[in-house]
């Protein structure tokens, strides 16, 4: 027991350049996937919100279909989603390995999750404000970028913070099956070569990334909230 702890805190196997490389890969995977999750999630969230708002001939089926797809991809466990998407990833990215090989699964796994958070954020908008905008003769497109997005922005930011943190975890899972990054470092080097000090360092770096995302997200959400 003591021996194991001693080895863990010895840091004798830790190679700084390998840690830097893994950190860089995790950051790339997280940030690119977060950007895509934000864009796709907001679009899906807007479709869900707008189609649930008023009764119309097309709105019911649109909401039903979008909602079904979102629920479907949210229900698949991430590790299975990666495997399931492999043929698709191979065609799209030309590889199933490395940072870019993980990207489709990361995006498809997180965008539907964020879509629900975006839908909740949009539902929180004061109905009266939307009615006021309509009483001015606003078009739907203008309603989206003049009212819906600005008025729900703090909640959208809080939601993307949660999603980004979830994505850090997803990149680590993807790392185990060959995506690179800190998850890969912890598993391929730390576990398989029996170097627990490397696993510990990978964990610490991941924690720092998660805390940084939370702090940045909170302060941005606070700064843009004028309520």
């Amino acid at each position: 027991m003591i021996e194991a702890l001693k080895e863990m805190f010895s840091f004798e196997h830790v190679k700084l350049d390998a840690v830097w490389q893994a950190t860089y890969e995790t950051l790339i995977m997280t940030s690119v996937a977060t950007v895509f999750a934000f864009v796709i999630g907001v679009i899906l969230g807007l479709i869900l919100f707008l189609s649930s708002r008023k009764k119309g001939r097309t709105n019911g089926p649109v909401y039903g279909a979008t909602s079904f797809v979102v629920n479907l991809f949210r229900a698949i466990p991430f590790i299975i989603l990666i495997i399931l998407l492999m043929p698709f990833t191979k065609v799209l990215m030309g590889t199933i390995m490395g940072v870019w090989g993980a990207m489709p699964a990361l995006i498809i796994g997180s965008a539907p999750f964020y879509a629900r958070l975006a839908e909740i954020a949009l539902k929180e908008i004061d109905k009266g404000v939307i009615e006021a905008a309509e009483s001015m003769g606003i078009r739907t497109l203008e309603l989206i970028y003049k009212v819906l997005i600005p008025e729900s922005l703090p909640a959208l930011v809080s939601g993307i913070t949660v999603t980004a943190i979830m994505l850090v975890g997803s990149t680590a899972i993807a790392g185990v099956i060959g995506a690179g990054g800190l998850g890969s470092l912890a598993y391929m080097v730390g576990f398989t070569r029996n170097q627990p000090d490397v696993t510990l360092v990978a964990t610490i770096v991941i924690l720092i990334i998660v805390f940084a995302i939370q702090i940045i997200g909170d302060s941005v959400a606070k700064a843009i909230d004028k309520r």
Partner: peptide, 22 residues
């Protein structure tokens, strides 16, 4: 045409309905 008309028939509200973001 209705959107255009609404610019000439405007409305104020009990709870003001201002955009907090502006």
């Amino acid at each position: 045409e209705l959107r255009k008309k609404r610019q000439k028939v405007s409305m104020i509200f009990q709870h003001f309905n201002l955009l907090w973001s502006r």
